[in-house]
């Protein structure tokens, strides 16, 4: 949907818009900290809703974490679930709206800690929902406490000496774990640390929504994301940390791609 710009007296357009804010985002300013890639993840989801032309059919189940206000940012019907329960609430929404597109947007504390039962069983049932899982290895909203995804040695406000495996166990790899469940048709991990990876993440988000449009089953995209504020870094330093610390520990890749999705954009060659 390129827009072309005409100047008076010129019949030929001078330029065209090659990138523009997606219309599925509301025209508001977000509360996210400068450089927080929650915003990037929002934009990508909105771009996919635009491209697939499903905004008017989509229902968001927002979760508890920094993205708690995501219902103010997407121009779609939305509800706000209790901490960790978004997959259960989305199940209720989807079961009585089987023709609609239902997605949750959850952080790592929400999805990988308090909400493990709900996410595992939604995946196991093959619930026809899409999960956008933003893994920033920390509890952003409550001020930077350790998350189940925090790296070993990572200092947080509740692991001041660094995460210790004896005390707190090892970080959880959710994309791999969810890929094990029979109801999952799409489980991949992407990163938001630079333009190339952002574009790859967008393709994956698109495939995840297509899996739902085709009624195939449960789809999840884990996005390695930054929290400059609680990591105590500048936004660009934070992206470097995603690349140099998170990506090696949480390998990017496709952990499950149902064969019916092969050949789509974002699916492996």
């Amino acid at each position: 949907m390129d827009t072309v710009v005409f100047k008076q007296n010129h019949v030929q357009p001078l330029e065209k818009i090659t990138y523009e804010r997606p219309s599925s985002l509301c025209d508001v300013h977000t509360h996210y900290c400068p450089g927080c890639t929650h915003g990037t993840a929002h934009r990508l989801v909105a771009e996919v809703l635009d491209e697939l032309d499903i905004r008017e059919d989509t229902i968001l189940v927002s979760s508890v974490g920094c993205s708690v206000f995501s219902y103010n940012y997407f121009d779609v019907d939305a509800c706000e679930a209790a901490h960790g329960r978004a997959p259960a609430m989305a199940t209720g929404v989807k079961r009585v709206n089987p023709g609609k597109i239902v997605f949750t947007y959850q952080g790592d504390g929400d999805l990988a800690s308090i909400g493990t039962a709900e996410i595992i069983h939604a995946a196991a049932r093959g619930e026809k929902i899409t999960v956008i899982f933003v893994n920033n290895a920390i509890y952003g909203m409550t001020g930077g406490q350790m998350a189940p995804t925090s790296l070993l040695g990572q200092k947080t406000t509740s692991s001041p000496f660094g995460r210790d495996a004896q005390l707190a166990g090892m970080p959880i790899h959710m994309a791999e774990l969810l890929a094990q469940l029979p109801g999952t048709v799409y489980s991949v991990r992407r990163s938001l640390h630079d333009a190339r990876h952002v574009l790859q993440a967008k393709k994956a988000i698109r495939t995840a929504f297509e899996a739902q449009i085709d009624n195939l089953g449960f789809s999840v995209v884990e996005l390695l994301s930054s929290c400059p504020t609680n990591w105590g870094m500048t936004p660009n330093e934070a992206l470097t940390w995603v690349e140099e610390a998170l990506v090696p520990f949480y390998p990017l890749g496709d952990y499950k791609v149902d064969e019916r999705l092969q050949g789509r954009k974002g699916a492996p060659k």
Partner: peptide
């Protein structure tokens, strides 16, 4: 524009 978390950037290309 692809990396901007706040969707602030509109890009035009000259024809």
């Amino acid at each position: 524009a692809v990396v901007c978390p706040d969707g602030c950037i509109t890009v035009y290309r000259d024809l």
